[in-house]
Design a protein around this nucleic acid. Structure first.
Lengths: 158, 158
DNA sequence: CGGGATGTCATGGGATAGCATGGGAATTTC
DNA sequence: GAAATTCCCATGCTATCCCATGACATCCCG
């Protein structure tokens, strides 16, 4: 299960978006009809996506990291403390697809993406992202330079 | 079964609130007609909600983890000892919905929420919450900063 | 090896179903 | 018997179902 490639998908006048077959194929075989979209926790204007299982697994790891194994009961009761997993849950929505792989993009996501006629779907391995096509272009250009610098900076030449 | 997303729901002049379909769908298939509301144990102005099964499971965990197997028996007999699960039960109410998913919000909850024409329903994964829309906005803003700080604080920057 | 056939993918759009909400009427409650 | 609660119908809107199309890619058989 690894999301790869970047694909530009039309946003039609009904507000529908197609989850490309390349991404659908990465969803668990027993849960192909729905997935999860959630706002990026620290990058405004970006929406993340994953399978339900992938999203839940991330929340589990997050809770373990934030609280340790004994914190589960506390977090279930303590409404005052900050709960990162709860925060992400609130920013997430389960999205059901039509049999052909299309879904209607909820307005809350369309507005932060500021998309009107096209959405860039970007595979990130263990998740995927939705971007405004123009913003993705800019991001990709700066990432290309950072990647080159990163590779240059890898040890090995000694 | 995981409650996600935040949805603003009207409180009509009869005092009725709709449990959104996204939340109804998370209720157990064999118990779709009712759920539980209870006051937050430590955050005034917030009301928690869950399925009857989810609420009961939390109480069980609370009794088991907080008191141990012997404590559970003790609490069943000892009316003098403090029983956190019993305390929560007293603050809880089973809410029956109409077939279309609406319910009338009991006055005791409406008053602590201080809502008059809208209630914010917030999914927290294992449970959901009812908030005064304005107060939720404020809480969400501070949580956003805490989330960014949390992400920044995760190791691995090295 | 070529070209028709088939299949899948991304997209468009009409028709229908379901959701959130409002409000009248019947029923309960004290 | 007056106020609150519950039942039921109505409505606008959005999402979903379902059918259709063109562009590719793959397959198959001579």
């Amino acid at each position: 299960m690894a999301f790869r490639s970047e694909i530009l998908i039309k946003l039609d006048k009904k507000g529908r978006v197609l989850l490309p077959a390349a991404f659908r194929d990465e969803l668990p075989a027993d849960d192909r009809g729905a997935f999860v979209l959630y706002h990026s926790p620290n990058l405004s204007g970006v929406v993340n996506g994953n399978s339900r299982a992938g999203f839940d697994a991330m929340l589990d790891r997050l809770r373990a990291e934030a609280l340790g194994p004994k914190g589960a009961l506390k977090v279930a009761l303590d409404d005052e403390a900050f709960d990162p997993a709860g925060y992400l849950s609130a920013s997430a929505r389960t999205i059901a697809m039509e049999p052909d792989g299309r879904f209607s993009l909820p307005a809350e996501f369309a507005s932060v993406l500021e998309v009107s006629d096209g959405v860039m779907l970007v595979g990130k391995g263990d998740k995927f992202q939705l971007w405004n096509p123009g913003r993705w272009q800019a991001r990709r250009d700066t990432d290309r330079d950072k990647m080159a610098a990163f590779v240059r900076g890898l040890g090995g030449d000694a």
